[in-house]
């Protein structure tokens, strides 16, 4: 399916060429459909016609959870936006702290050194010989009652009807009030730094466009997203093309799940109905939509 789409999209060679440089062959098959579709629209709340979604094999018992989640995703996309409720579930018992999600997110969104959407926190318990570690990936919580959006003086960040908290890069003035207001430290500021700064040449990969919010963002000069607050958006540009967020796809332990909590048949609905579920800093009342299984 992805290959067919590739052929259809040959008029957009520029983007594909860039992508070929930056993505490995394995990831390209997943990334390409997202990129080659219509990309001009900003992160608006207007309902857009459903794009052609990746074709999935028929359901089988014991199929890979990724396939099941993609099926959940496609079902959700067929509903109106306000009836979806995207949530993420992270199983802390399965997370091995490999940081694949952190890195995949950086690669997907071309994040500079000053920005991270999904770091993995480590905590060590006990004393030798009884020592253990716990790993806690921390994406944006996409709170139902987000503390970061009402503080924005210019309405540049808001919660969409499907619950995803987004930033309008073209409107953000870079005051960083939202960064101070997030109780999870989930927002970063793009300072305009590059990993390969102070080397003979800034690596082309760092200047390659990211496709956040369905637009091609090239980091150059003082242009957005440089000088903006940035944060995890649950890979909005991927999920609206029927693909799972990059951190979910790349999790080697299948410890991260994503889907529509309003759909009783979805995997995430099953998982968050269990008693071993918790959310970070529940006492603040922000109602985060990232659940942890402990």
């Amino acid at each position: 399916m992805a290959l067919e789409k590739d052929k259809n999209g040959e008029n957009q060679v520029g983007r594909r060429a860039v992508l070929e440089k930056i993505a490995s062959a394995v990831f390209a098959s997943l990334v390409a459909p997202a990129v080659l579709s219509e990309t001009a629209e900003a992160a608006t709340e207007q309902e857009q016609p459903l794009p052609q979604l990746p074709e999935l094999p028929p359901p089988q018992p014991n199929e890979d959870l990724l396939i099941r989640m993609m099926r959940d995703l496609q079902r959700a996309l067929k509903k109106p936006m306000e009836q979806r409720r995207w949530v993420m579930v992270i199983d802390l018992r399965k997370c091995v702290g490999c940081n694949a999600c952190t890195i995949a997110c950086i690669a997907e969104n071309k994040l500079p050194p000053s920005v991270v959407y999904r770091p993995v926190l480590q905590e060590e318990f006990g004393k030798y010989p009884n020592v253990s570690k716990r790993f806690l990936p921390r994406p944006c919580m996409h709170c139902d009652n987000p503390p970061c959006t009402p503080v924005c003086p210019v309405k540049a960040t808001w919660k969409r009807p499907d619950g995803i908290v987004v930033i309008d890069y073209e409107a953000c003035i870079g005051c960083r009030y939202c960064i101070t207001a997030c109780p999870y430290g989930a927002r970063s500021f793009d300072f305009g730094d590059y990993y390969t700064e102070d080397t003979p040449e800034i690596a082309p990969i760092e200047k390659a466009p990211s496709f956040e919010y369905h637009e091609a963002w090239e980091r150059k000069g003082h242009e957005s997203p440089i000088g903006n607050a940035r944060k995890c958006h649950f890979c909005l540009h991927r999920i609206e093309r029927g693909l799972l967020p990059q951190c979910v796809t790349t999790c080697i332990g299948r410890a991260t799940y994503f889907g529509d909590a309003n759909d009783p048949e979805s995997l995430v609905s099953e998982l968050i109905s269990k008693p071993n579920v918790m959310r970070l800093k529940e006492e603040l009342g922000a109602e985060p939509k990232v659940y942890y299984l402990i």
Binding site: P119, V120, L121, Q122, E123, L136, R138, C182, P183, Y184, G185, L280, K281
Partner: peptide, 8 residues
Amino acid sequence: QIKGLEEA
């Protein structure tokens, strides 16, 4: 904001 965030 969360214990250990600065080392993550």
